[in-house]
């Protein structure tokens, strides 16, 4: 049980996919304009991660080593299609806001990275916990980044105005602002790691 919990918690801080592994930066840069987009993206990616990690952990012994990557992609693409169709059906606004970045979860480095580095070597339960931890870590990182970006770039959090008379920093709403912010946050994470 303790091992399972550590599998879960490592994804949140020690091996945070965004700030420590630096994986999946492309969707992070693109969709983190507002908190709601960040949460939507994080939940979709978590769902795909869980599904693909579990399936791959189950079928790992049947996949020939030489064609394992195409096999992973097929599994991942299946779950991405499920997530995309569900999002289109239940939350069309979010789907429009995230746009191409939902189908692009197929090539999200976090999902493929966990399949290749973890799920193909570990048991079903461990892979489930790993996928959940990574997904939650990714979602938390997205919430942090998109929270700062939405506050600075539009003066709102989840669409609500926070400070009256605040002049939004326009650049934070653009990808250049996201790059700048992620660079700084990565720096702070490295600093914190070095201090420990």
């Amino acid at each position: 049980m303790k091992k399972l919990l550590s599998e879960f918690f490592k994804g949140i801080i020690k091996e945070n996919p965004t700030f420590v592994l630096a994986l999946g930066l492309c969707p992070t840069l693109a969709v983190s304009v507002s908190v709601i987009n960040g949460i939507g993206m994080g939940v979709a990616a978590t769902f795909v991660l869980l599904g693909s990690n579990m399936i791959i952990a189950l079928i790992k012994n049947f996949i020939p080593a030489r064609i394992r990557i195409p096999c992973y992609i097929v599994v991942i693409a299946t779950f991405v299609t499920i997530a995309e169709l569900a999002m289109k059906a239940y939350s069309p606004i979010l789907d429009r806001a995230l746009g191409i970045y939902v189908p692009l979860i197929v090539v999200n480095c976090i999902v493929l990275g966990r399949a290749e580095a973890y799920a193909c070597k570990n048991s079903l339960v461990n892979s489930f916990m790993d996928g959940l931890g990574m997904g939650v870590g990714f979602t938390l990182a997205l919430i942090l980044i998109s929270g700062i970006r939405e506050f600075l770039g539009a003066g709102t959090i989840l669409g609500h105005t926070v400070v009256k008379g605040f002049e939004p920093v326009f650049v934070m709403g653009m990808p250049s602002g996201a790059l700048l912010l992620i660079g700084l946050l990565l720096g702070f994470f490295n600093l914190a790691k070095r201090r420990n």
Binding site: V169, F170, M172
Partner: peptide
């Protein structure tokens, strides 16, 4: 450039 991009 930061000011230009932020508060044009």
């Amino acid at each position: 450039v930061f000011l230009m991009a932020s508060w044009p």
